[in-house]
């Protein structure tokens, strides 16, 4: 197990390097650049621009820039934002909280809902209930996030006025309840669109298990139906969800990107979009490395967790 993990860790580090290289090239290859914003300043001369570019190291060949950047990254110096000279790590850290809240709140909503939906569909295979559950999943899956978000804003914020439409807090309020009210619509949006992820996997896993002999044996020995579902079926169906979660939890970040934009939620997604707009290379690259590391870390942690939880995998 330890050998396996070490090997995996090594592969992951290599992947990380690769991702950062490709990302670096792509980011720098996109048209426009961080100098554009300076170019518009009144009284800007090309000599002055060249000076700024030199100060940023942008006049050197790309491979040199990469080496310079990655060497500093390895020592923990992720660079500073072009926009306000805030260290990149600080910037990510400041926005991470908002995204984590959004992710967690939507997970609390979508996971139980999706698992319940999947279990019901699996137990009622071939009946109208299953078709209804599948239909619900397909509908939720095909709803564009931004559209759902806008509908929620229109209904719950504009028409009904129950929840605020954006931002972390109302200026001047900042109390816990106010914060929760702000969290409601974005997490509902992100939560609903991620329900099908959990429900489809749960349905597949639970359906397989439900047809197995040990379920029939439990029934033939008089174990009550609720016990079979809750104590026999559910734990066995949840186990393979752990690696699935490891793969998909980080991809919620991309769902959060749209949600954060619609709800002006100051999270990682917003930070990325803003930084891209300004060609704020250090921040963009920092976010890229950060999310890649997150993806790899999540799958590694999920793997370990799966091994710890599933008695069949324990050595």
């Amino acid at each position: 197990m330890t050998g396996f993990l070490l090997q995996k860790l090594g592969v992951n580090c290599l992947l990380l390097v690769l991702v950062s290289m490709v990302g670096f090239v792509l980011v720098h290859a996109t048209p426009g650049g961080p100098l554009a914003q300076f170019a518009l300043s009144p009284g800007m001369t090309s000599a002055r621009l060249a000076e700024i570019a030199h100060g940023m190291g942008l006049d050197r060949p790309l491979w040199q820039q990469y080496l310079h950047w990655s060497a500093r990254l390895a020592t923990g110096d992720w660079g500073r934002s072009y926009r306000d000279q805030t260290p990149v790590l600080t910037m990510i850290w400041l926005h991470l909280g908002a995204t984590a809240q959004l992710g967690l709140a939507s997970l609390i909503l979508s996971f139980p809902l999706g698992v319940a939906l999947g279990i019901v569909a699996a137990l009622r295979a071939g009946t109208r209930t299953e078709h209804l559950a599948s239909l619900l999943s397909v509908v939720l899956l095909s709803l564009p996030t931004f559209w759902l978000g806008l509908v929620f804003i229109y209904v719950f914020s504009v028409r009904l006025g129950w929840f605020p439409a954006g931002n972390l807090t109302t200026p001047g309020h900042g109390a816990f309840m106010d914060h929760l009210r702000h969290l409601a619509l974005p997490s509902l949006t992100l939560g609903l669109v991620s329900v099908p992820l959990w429900s489809s996997y749960t349905q597949a896993f639970a359906g397989d298990i439900w047809r197995q002999d040990h379920i029939r044996t439990a029934r033939a020995l008089g174990v009550p139906a609720w016990r079979i579902v809750v104590l026999h079926l559910l734990p066995e169906a949840l186990l393979p969800l752990i690696p699935v979660a490891g793969v998909y939890l980080p991809t919620l970040l991309s769902g959060a990107l749209v949600t954060e934009t619609v709800f002006t939620w100051p999270g990682i997604g917003r930070l990325l979009l803003d930084s891209l707009q300004y060609r704020d290379y250090p921040v963009v690259m920092g976010l890229l490395v950060f999310s890649a590391a997150l993806v790899l870390l999540c799958s590694l942690v999920a793997e370990i967790l799966h091994h710890l939880c599933d008695p069949r995998l324990r050595g």
Binding site: Q212, D213, H214, A218, A220, L221, G222, E236, R312
Partner: peptide, 21 residues
Amino acid sequence: PLRGKRVSMIFQDPMSSLNPI
């Protein structure tokens, strides 16, 4: 309540008749 108490039934495949976890 009668199953397992008054009358039990077992099946062919012992490999899959028990809860694996």
